[in-house]
Computed example of a mutant assay.
Amino acid sequence: MYFSQLQQKMLLEQTSGTVIGYIEDAVINKDTGKIEGYVVGKTTKMFQKVSSERIVQVTDITSVGSDFIFIRLTGID
C-alpha cells in the first residue's frame, strides 16, 4: 500500500469509534529505515485543520480497511 493511500483513510479508535484524524506524515527510524509511527492531524466538521497533532505508533494499528484505519487508544501521544 502506498503512503498516499493511507493519508486518505480516516483513523478511528476501535472500541469507541472516536475519530482520531488523518495521517499527515510518517515517523521513520533513521537507523533501520522502518516506519515507527504516523503523525495524525485532527480535523473539524468542515475539514479545517486543528493545530493539535498526535503520534500513532505502528503497533497501535489493529486493521486497515477500504475507508478507515482502526487503532487502539493506548500508546497515542
Rank of each mutant, 00 (worst) to 15 (best):
M1E: 10
Y2D: 08
Y2W: 04
F3A: 12
F3T: 09
S4L: 06
S4R: 07
Q5T: 10
Q5L: 09
L6M: 12
Q7L: 05
Q7T: 12
Q7K: 15
Q7F: 06
M10R: 06
M10Y: 01
M10F: 04
M10D: 06
M10E: 10
L11M: 12
L11G: 01
Q14R: 15
Q14C: 11
Q14D: 11
T15H: 00
S16M: 08
S16I: 06
S16L: 10
G17L: 12
I20Y: 03
I20F: 04
G21T: 03
G21S: 05
Y22S: 04
Y22K: 12
Y22R: 09
I23P: 03
E24L: 12
E24R: 13
D25W: 05
A26C: 14
V27I: 14
V27P: 00
I28D: 02
N29R: 02
K30H: 07
K30N: 05
K30M: 02
D31M: 05
D31P: 00
D31E: 14
T32V: 03
T32I: 02
G33C: 03
K34H: 06
K34W: 00
K34I: 00
E36P: 02
E36Y: 05
E36D: 15
G37M: 05
Y38R: 00
V39H: 10
V39Q: 10
V39M: 13
G41M: 08
K42N: 06
T43W: 04
T43Y: 14
T43C: 01
T44Q: 10
T44F: 01
K45S: 15
M46K: 08
M46L: 01
F47R: 13
F47D: 14
F47V: 11
Q48Y: 07
Q48M: 13
Q48P: 00
K49T: 13
K49P: 05
K49F: 13
V50D: 10
V50P: 00
V50Q: 08
V50F: 05
S52Y: 12
R54C: 08
R54N: 12
I55N: 11
I55C: 12
I55T: 15
V56R: 03
V56P: 01
Q57V: 09
Q57P: 11
Q57T: 10
T59G: 08
T59L: 10
T59C: 06
D60T: 13
D60M: 09
D60V: 00
I61G: 04
I61H: 05
T62H: 02
T62A: 07
S63L: 08
V64I: 15
V64E: 09
V64S: 00
V64D: 00
V64A: 07
S66W: 08
S66H: 09
D67V: 13
F68T: 12
I69C: 05
I69P: 01
F70A: 15
F70Y: 15
I71T: 04
R72E: 09
R72W: 02
R72Y: 00
R72V: 02
L73M: 11
L73R: 14
L73T: 12
T74C: 03
T74Y: 08
T74L: 08
G75E: 11
I76L: 10
I76A: 04
I76T: 07
D77E: 09
